[in-house]
């Protein structure tokens, strides 16, 4: 976990990280759907896939290039991949 600690530490130090969490593996997932007014609770993830979401961080950076620079330093980029998405802005500003 040293690599993760260093990575998160450097983001904190740069002052770009707003929040973030690692997630427990998909075996712990519970999926909820409401269809036709009825709630359906299932154990397991909403889709079975070889790759799954392992966690997220919210960064505040100027642009995509800055985000890419942080993403490529993530330990996850070495074995899996890091997906970058802009946060949706609040419609009322």
């Amino acid at each position: 976990m040293g690599a993760w600690r260093d990575y998160i530490g450097s983001m904190m130090q740069a002052g770009v990280m707003l929040n973030g969490d690692g997630l427990q593996p998909p075996a712990t997932a519970t999926t909820v759907k409401v269809r036709g007014g009825a709630r359906k609770v299932q154990d397991g993830p909403y889709c079975e896939a070889k790759e799954y979401l392992g966690g997220y961080v919210t960064l505040e950076v100027d642009d995509l290039d800055a985000a890419i620079k942080w993403a490529e330093q993530s330990p996850a980029a070495l074995s899996g991949s890091v997906e970058i998405r802009p946060v949706m802005m609040n419609a009322t500003g």
């Binding site: 100027d62 642009d63 995509l64 290039d65 985000a67 970058i84 802009p86």
Partner: peptide, 14 residues
């Protein structure tokens, strides 16, 4: 428009 692609003066790095 949406992906956060920067608009900046091109330089030798990019």
């Amino acid at each position: 428009r949406d992906a956060g692609i920067p608009f900046r003066t091109p330089d030798p790095s990019n």
